[in-house]
Write a protein that binds this DNA or RNA. Structure first.
Length: 136
RNA sequence: GCAGCAGUCUGCCUUACCGCGCCGGGAAAACCCGGUGAGGAAAGUCCGGGCAACACAGGGCGCCGUACUUCCUAACAGGAAGGCGCAACUUGGGUAACCGGGUUGCGACAGAGAGUGUCACAGAAACUAUACCGUCUCGGCUUAGCCGAGAUAAGGGUGAAAAAGCGGGGUAAGAGCCCACUCAUCUCGUUGUGAAACGGGAUUGGGAUAAACCUUGCGGGUUGAAAGACCAAAUAAACCCUGCAUCAGGAGCUGCCCGCUCCGGUUUACUGCUUCGGCAGUAAUGGCAGGGAGGGUAGGUCGAUUGAGGCCUGUUGUGAAGCAGGUCCCAGAUAAAUGGUAAGGGUCCUUUUUCGGCAACGAAUUCGGAUACAGAAUCCGGCUUACAGGACUGCUUUUAAA
RNA sequence: GGUCGGAUGGCCGAGAGGCUAGGCACGGGUCUGCAAAACCCUCUACACCGGUUCGAAUCCGGUUCCGACCU
């Protein structure tokens, strides 16, 4: 019997995806980001509201670097899987605060990379993010 | 059997674990269960429609598009069948040049006897054509030729292009000047719905360019789902303009109107008249409708997935396609779902080895590799472009056997 | 998603059917004691693929890339 909390961890329903234009423009103001090739994470902490979950995320791939829609779809799906399978690392970090976290995963690479590479890169980013948040 | 070309179709599968969107059911909710979920090009946005908003008496001009004929279609610049021209292959005749037949491919294939423009350089001359060399005649000087006046488009040279082609006659030399054949054009007849074809007649016969302007026929109102409709939230009941109403009001009942009940009110300034109660005019205020400018929002619902729909059968037609019957419901997202990881299999290519076959080659085995192009965004009909591999059909070369 | 526009040397930029101007930069030279400025000379181009035409940067299709606008 696995506890229900653990079962939920690998899910990524739609409401955890960041979709408000206001929040997104806020994310892309010059400010807080961590990077580890080929990924970059813009993040923003703001007071918790009742409706939204504590962590919201969005995925972004440049149309200039990847002309074909299939390539962009592929990368975004890979990113989503990487985040989905490793999001518990973050959730532990943020849950104790009275704030919620909004973040954007941006793919900065020039070509398609396999799943395992993206996974290790994401985990590095998370480590960096932990350090930064603890300092603040 | 193999290869090439053309056309049509197809375009990986299975299992395990973890997920995502939509629909239905359960549940207070978290969530659970079931169903379902990319393409032939979803692409480019190159054409044509549906749909929506706005505009709109009718006609002309202009602008844009289009162009052999007939048909198909909701429509088209698409498709089908046919005509003509060009090319390739093949076959028959012929010594050959070439001619006839067949198959396939390609063609922005209307008009240059309506007008305007352009045609660089070269060349004598590039458009009411033209005489540089050459050829010929006559005259003069002089007998070698030169000079002058004319005739001439055969030959030379230039050019992308030089005034129907070729042979003969003719002539001082030449020339459609004349004749035969051929090629255009016009015209008459026959056949065909038609593009055209065939036959007769006529000297009638001096470029190219219309993807230059243009002429003729035909078609087109403009803008596109970020169209457009509604709801919520937020801001600023403010400001400006126009029109209407004019002493009008507010609250409750009600989905709305009518109606009923209750409460409150009949304003302010100026001017004129006055029987001093008021009345009339102007301005302001408040009401309604439309517009402008400015401000706010960046959420949701509809549009939007049943349609010129797919599949099957019959039937009409050479065909594109039409008609009739049956049957099916088959993505609907919106910072944008349709996926990830692992294992196995299929198909194809290359290498090794073995077997079969006269041979081209085929089958098995094994190391390694490949498994395309590409992702719905309002929906349809086309076109164009991209595409690993496979299947089928037609034609042709080649190899082997008979 | 839709509607438009553009692509000419290293950079800017004219040309609109007939040898692709011009400026800046680079390189060489003149001048100078050495430089700068000035003057002279040289090098390097029509995005790609087809078509129309005698001839295409220009006209017409297609491909690629870049940019603008519409809520």
């Amino acid at each position: 019997m696995t506890p229900p909390q653990l079962q939920q961890r690998y899910k990524l329903p739609r409401k955890n995806i960041l979709r408000s234009q206001k929040a997104i423009t806020g994310l892309f103001q010059p400010g807080f980001f961590v990077g580890s090739f080929p990924l970059r994470i813009n993040y923003l902490l703001h007071p918790k509201t009742a409706e939204t979950p504590s962590v919201q995320v969005m995925f972004s791939v440049s149309k200039k670097r990847f002309k074909k829609a299939t390539d962009r779809n592929r990368i975004k799906r890979l990113l989503r899987e990487v985040y989905r399978l490793n999001q518990h690392e973050l959730q532990v970090l943020v849950l104790n605060e009275e704030q919620q976290l909004a973040m954007a995963l941006i793919y900065t690479g020039q070509e398609l990379l396999p799943f395992q590479v993206l996974k290790s890169s994401f985990l590095q980013c998370v480590q960096k993010l932990k350090k930064k948040l603890n300092h603040a």
